[in-house]
Design a protein around this nucleic acid. Structure first.
Lengths: 211, 211
DNA sequence: TCATGATTGTTATAATTATAACAAAACCGT
DNA sequence: ACGGTTTTGTTATAATTATAACAATCATGA
């Protein structure tokens, strides 16, 4: 029944988390079905785009009926790779690190924050809301023993690149980077940047056009 | 000399902060000029794209020479709206709020974090690294008296929308939203979302394609 | 001052992404 | 079981974005 999926374009991938968020919500609120039209109004996209997007990874709707919320949610869940576990460490136990360590939205998704790493003797050895803080010297060993596959980088800008190098040397292939720099790392390492100043500048740009 | 600027496309706007970051860096390192070729290698874009991008808001290069780093940096600075001051408040004085309040990268850009707001009696009244924490009841008055134009939203998901409504009611037109929900607000309010879970899901997607 | 080489500005082309349109399929009430 | 209605899947078209190509322009050194 399900058609073999065509190529999923980069634009669609960028939208997947949003679809996932809305479908999860609909599912929790007990909705059985949803039409592309209804979804388009909720999400601020066109119905046409939604149908094309969903179609690009296989057809999961029924003509004359709509999409089954639960099914679609599950498909996107798996497509996002959330059918396997992710064991993360946070590197840099400052305020940002702590904030991420108990960020709501990771729960129930197989994304586990296992430990934090720092070099500050004040912090090392402590435990924060169940997450232990270790010394950076222990990173390599910990990563291997605990099969860590994601590092979340929350260190000061000045040491961002060198800490990233350490992380990669420990064998980690996925980095979520909160440091406002462009990391230079091997091809096989996946980097997802969360650049807070870039986002703020986009906001100031928009605001300055309004007045 | 400078041609009248054509329309600056959304894709270019999204890249502006990155250009700004690299040009600032080059400028600080004392570079006088830069060619689209050199910049393309640094930034991981094509030289062609860079020339088109820069051209879309007026031509600032010299043929046979390149672009003057300082000039170009200044132009983008102004284009991003950074020639006027931004007075921000952080709403939600948790770890994330505190992290943002002394985020490196806002300094020297006319972006001022003036105060934080919360409802927790433990926090209200305190001052953190020079940033006072006030009660939410005082938001409206504070915003007007201090001409606040940006609110940075760092509250729990459950109260995200209602707090955003309060912020808008206080007259703020620019919101940086760290809450993992899609805010519904009047047309004239500019929202910039920083959705940490969305970014993480993009990362898990990429990682799951690699193995 | 002139010729050469470098590098932009700009136009032409390709690729990607979004929208529109509609036939095919499935639901639903009778 | 059937006809009308809904809503998808898909194709066709438009818009946006990226790349390539090259003529126009300027810097530079002889």
């Amino acid at each position: 029944m399900r058609k073999s999926s065509k190529k999923v374009s980069m634009s669609v991938i960028r939208r997947l988390p949003k679809y996932y968020r809305f479908l999860n919500d609909l599912n929790e609120r007990g909705f059985q079905k949803i039409s592309s039209m209804e979804l388009s109004k909720m999400m601020g996209l066109t119905a046409s785009q939604i149908r094309q997007d969903l179609n690009s990874f296989g057809a999961y709707g029924q003509q004359g009926y709509g999409y089954r919320v639960q099914d679609l949610r599950d498909v996107i869940h798996d497509l996002l790779g959330l059918d396997r576990p992710y064991r993360c460490v946070i590197v840099g136990a400052g305020n940002l690190g702590h904030a991420i360590s108990h960020y709501e939205g990771f729960k129930n998704e197989g994304i586990w924050i296992r430990a934090m790493f720092d070099i500050d003797p004040e912090k090392v050895g402590q435990t924060h809301e169940g997450v232990p803080i270790f010394h950076m010297d222990y990173l390599d060993e910990y990563v291997h023993e605990n099969m860590i596959n994601i590092a979340i980088l929350c260190v000061p800008r000045a040491i961002g690149q060198s800490v990233a190098n350490e992380v990669v040397r420990a064998g980690i292939k996925g980095i979520m980077n909160f440091v406002p720099i462009d990391l230079t790392l091997p091809e096989d390492v996946v980097i997802e940047d969360v650049n807070i100043s870039d986002s703020l500048y986009t906001l100031t740009y928009m605001l300055s056009r309004r007045s």
